[in-house]
């Protein structure tokens, strides 16, 4: 089987202290953003389903840190973290959550459907596994046009038993598409543990023999490991080797969505993972390197808190879409009697 360069003697990409500080900050932003979302949800400012990324921050931050602006990013419905890691501003994200016209999807998408064409962020998709075929279309277009772009496609462990996953990976394998498929394995498809949903639970094994796509495992609670794996992975794809499958071991501290009483797991289990918290781990390292201390951590958290509050307030005060907006963007080329009869 093909191996990627992480398994050879190639030196691992060591992140700079600036990068480490940046990731620490980004992960902290995501966490505080999500905490604010939980609050806004309880205040019924956010409607629909809302799936928080708390605990999984290192996955989006570490992996997207290794991308370039021209690379394509597409994910599932737990998409707040990826959007922030991709550089989307918090105000349009809160505005989207509050259904405002200035939202990143103009108030038409909500929590599960964040989009940003300028940032090459292709959503935000809520049908489990339904976006994986879109990812291979992005990869297909890049390869067809001979463009130097890699597609990052994220999904949860619930998606890997959907037909769309298997069909997409088979096609990616046939055409050697420059795509990295990442299963963010947080152990549960909603409330169903992996052991009850998957015949083969060692997920990294599922694509090698089946689709000729090498699988790797990475600790998704470790931002640095995530980054190093993705740097190598992106290089592997850019070099024309085809696709890659990553099993990212992670954990979500919150429920599947805001309406999840979490009766399927114990508080002790959650606490065990929180001991390996991705933000706490990086903070410990940065303290050892004397880049952070109590004062700096407190100052950064205060600063982030203020930024989150400011974004929330701006979004909260923004205008809702108008009645005319109902009919906008149904078609790119609208004509004929689509409009009110």
């Amino acid at each position: 089987m093909t191996t990627i360069s992480t398994s050879t003697s190639t030196p691992k990409a060591e992140p700079t202290t600036t990068q480490l500080m940046d990731w620490y900050r980004q992960m902290s932003v995501i966490r505080q953003f999500e905490v604010k979302c939980a609050q806004s949800y309880q205040q019924q400012k956010i409607g629909g389903f809302c799936h928080l990324y708390v605990g999984q921050e290192a996955v989006a931050v570490g992996s997207i840190a290794a991308t370039r602006p021209q690379d394509y990013v597409i994910t599932a419905y737990r998409d707040h973290g990826h959007a922030i890691a991709r550089g989307m501003e918090m105000t349009p994200l809160f505005a989207e959550l509050y259904g405002k016209a200035s939202g990143c999807s103009r108030g038409k998408g909500g929590s599960m459907h964040f989009f940003d064409a300028e940032k090459n962020f292709f959503g935000g998709h809520a049908i489990v596994g339904g976006h994986i075929p879109l990812a291979i279309g992005l990869g297909w277009a890049a390869k067809y046009r001979k463009e130097d772009r890699v597609t990052l496609c994220y999904f949860g462990d619930g998606a890997i038993n959907q037909g769309s996953f298997h069909e997409a990976l088979n096609l990616a394998g046939i055409h050697k598409l420059p795509c990295i498929f990442m299963v963010e394995n947080n152990g549960y498809a909603m409330g169903t543990h992996l052991h009850r949903s998957s015949a083969v639970t060692d997920l990294k094994l599922r694509t090698g023999d089946a689709y000729g796509i090498p699988g790797k495992e990475v600790d998704g609670m470790d931002c640095i490991a995530m980054y190093q794996m993705m740097r190598d992975g992106i290089e592997y794809c850019r070099s024309g080797n085809g696709s890659l499958f990553l099993e990212v071991k992670t954990y979500r501290y919150r429920g599947h969505s805001m309406s999840d009483p979490q009766k399927y797991r114990t508080k002790e289990e959650v606490a065990k993972y929180q001991d390996h918290d991705p933000i706490g781990r990086l903070e410990k390292l940065l303290r050892e390197k004397k880049l952070l201390d109590d004062g700096k951590v407190a100052a950064m958290n205060d600063e982030i808190h203020a930024a989150v509050e400011k974004a929330h307030e701006e979004a909260d005060g923004a205008a809702f879409p108008t009645t005319e907006d109902i009919w906008k963007d149904v078609y790119a080329m609208p004509f004929g009697p689509y409009l009110a009869r």
Partner: peptide
């Protein structure tokens, strides 16, 4: 074969591929 492309019997896969490619301006 780059432009007239046989697929496996995999309708969800290749129809989704077409949609994804269209999202970046191709016309499948």
């Amino acid at each position: 074969p780059q432009r007239v492309v046989d697929t496996p019997i995999s309708e969800a896969g290749f129809s989704g591929l077409g949609i994804g490619a269209a999202m970046v301006g191709m016309r499948p």
